[in-house]
Simulated scan of single mutants.
Amino acid sequence: MMWSTADVPDQHGRTALVTGGASGLGLETARVLAARGAHVVLACRDPGRGRAAASLIGGRTDVVPLDLASLASVREAARRVRDRYGRLDLLVNNAGVMFPPYRRTQDGFEPHFGVNHLGHFALTGLLLDLMREVPGSRVVTVSSLAHRLAVRGARPQEARAAAGHRSVVAYGRSKLANLMFARELQLRLEDTGAATASVAAHPGVSPTGLWENGAPAWLRPVSGVALRWLAQEPARAAVPLLRAATDPLVAGGSYLGPAGVAECAGGAVPARSARAARDGLARIRLWERSQELTGVSFG
């Protein structure tokens, strides 16, 4: 039987933080977690949209301002979470950008790499001590089918590249970095005996707000066909994220995605990853460079 949102276990007594929880996959993930009883924290760039989403979700739902394009904002958001909550059961690193209209983050990084990877890397490092001793706690990092486009690897040495805000390859590199980070984090959690597991997931193809800024002109015919014939609505696309976050049978280090053709749609099953994501030395180099760029150390 295919795993679905009906299989999400009871979440009462658990606190979950979802980045980008005001819309799309984040909103759907947060909605199901709250419906199952979790205390959900929406970490959103626009607090107004976050409050509107919290009202829609209901239950115990809070909002924390978070702009992943600013490491100062990441640190402030982490401080607020640490001040308000004594523990964290789930951290869902979901928010991201794709073909954004701006060229660099506030800290001078190429936007895909800076927001999608470095912002979440820093946030996780700043919050992890709220999770390490919590039984069943998990960090879920959202990757993408596009990670397979990064044939030359994550390229952290190009973190401050001037170009890339309209680059499919730059987006792919950031999503490869997400997957590499999730796997390296799992190994380090195991080495320290932490109770926390790190799991990755991808949603397949879904018409979320990431497409609002528009794909490059050459990609639009392809993306139009993909969204019309292969995509699934955000509620279904969030199922791999929810399984990664809540299914007790999913082991740390797993990577989940849709079960259908080319992993574009369908239920949540183990997903295929590019060879680059399994390169242990490259993961270590990415980790060390990410610590240098963010100033955040995991200890």
Rank of each mutant, 00 (worst) to 15 (best):
M1S: 15
A6I: 13
Q11S: 10
Q11E: 12
H12F: 08
V18D: 12
S23A: 13
G24Q: 01
L25M: 04
L33G: 12
A34Q: 05
A35N: 09
A38E: 14
R49F: 15
R49K: 15
G50S: 12
R51I: 00
A52K: 13
A53M: 09
S55G: 15
S55D: 15
L56V: 11
G58V: 13
R60S: 15
R60N: 14
D67W: 04
V74G: 05
R75M: 08
V81W: 00
D83V: 00
D83G: 08
L91M: 06
N94V: 00
V97K: 00
M98F: 02
F99E: 02
D107P: 05
G108M: 06
G108T: 11
F113R: 00
G114V: 02
L118M: 12
G119V: 15
H120W: 05
H120I: 01
T124H: 03
L128R: 07
M131E: 10
M131K: 04
M131Y: 08
V140S: 09
S143F: 05
V151K: 11
R155T: 01
P156I: 08
A163N: 11
A163C: 04
H165L: 05
H165M: 02
S167H: 12
A170N: 07
L187F: 04
L189Y: 07
E190I: 03
D191S: 13
P207V: 08
T208E: 00
T208F: 00
G209H: 04
L210K: 00
L210S: 04
N213Q: 13
A215Y: 06
W218E: 06
P221I: 10
A226R: 05
R228T: 14
E233R: 14
L242E: 11
L249D: 06
L249Y: 07
A251E: 15
A251N: 03
G252D: 05
G260Q: 07
G260C: 06
C264Q: 07
G266K: 01
G266I: 02
V269I: 05
V269P: 06
P270S: 09
A274F: 01
S290L: 09
G295F: 13
F298Q: 07
